[in-house]
Amino acid sequence: MAEPNPIAWWRRLLALPNESRGKMLAMAFLVAAVSSLTVSIAAVVLQPQIDANKAAERQAKLDAMIADLPGLADILAETGADTLETIIVDLTTGLVAEAAFEAFDFAAIAADPETSTELSDDQDIAGIIRRPNYAEIHVLKAGRQVELVILPIYAAGYQSTIRAFLALRGDLNTVAGLVVTEQGETPGLGANIATPAWQALWPGKKLADDDGTLKLAVVRGQGTTEYEVDGITGATRTSTAVGDMIAFWMGPNGYAKVFEALRTGAL
């Protein structure tokens, strides 16, 4: 009995008739293994570059949104400030985060058990499983008065994670704008949430009624009140996900504490 020799073994495999069961299994396995290895290597090598592209795009969209917000230029001119104040807030206290961050990475913070909170099923209306404890928000003040807040929000959509920025006016109840920065929903249907035409429906909508009950929702068909935004036909689940995203982040497990701090002037 000769020593098991990989080269001889390989030759024997190649010599097998194509229709034999062994060869079929071996070919299926080898092609699958080599293909998945190639794809994995490419994904790992290229991921940092792709992430950098996405981060740059997010920043560009935020800048574009700030530039587009009506009245912002006037406020900036009045107060003499030329940029928004960027604050990292602690969502559990609503105050400025005590921990220091070298480079703020929202997604990494949400994934790390040390810096995020697990949500129970009934808390987790946005389908995000863990809520980050810290968020990077942008605030514009005229003197002590808050004029505008920009909050990063995200939720599980129909087939991707939807990331967006929501801008609120100084009353913390009127929407100044919504811009979807990242999504991978169905092209032509759900992906329309990223179009300027759909996002233009948001400014002026109200979050809650006079009693403080959160009412803003994305509805089927045409919205009729100032608490309703038109849904996208053929993309019910994407539309609902955007509504749920607002409901979660504006709710008690989202930015409620931050709003409180902003109202009392603690932030």
């Binding site: 190649l14 229709e19 060869k23 299926a28 092609v31 699958a32 293909s35």
Partner: peptide, 17 residues
Amino acid sequence: HMPKQIRLILQITIIAS
């Protein structure tokens, strides 16, 4: 070395990767 019965799926796997 492509068995006839599974050649299409092998081709698609290669193309997809």
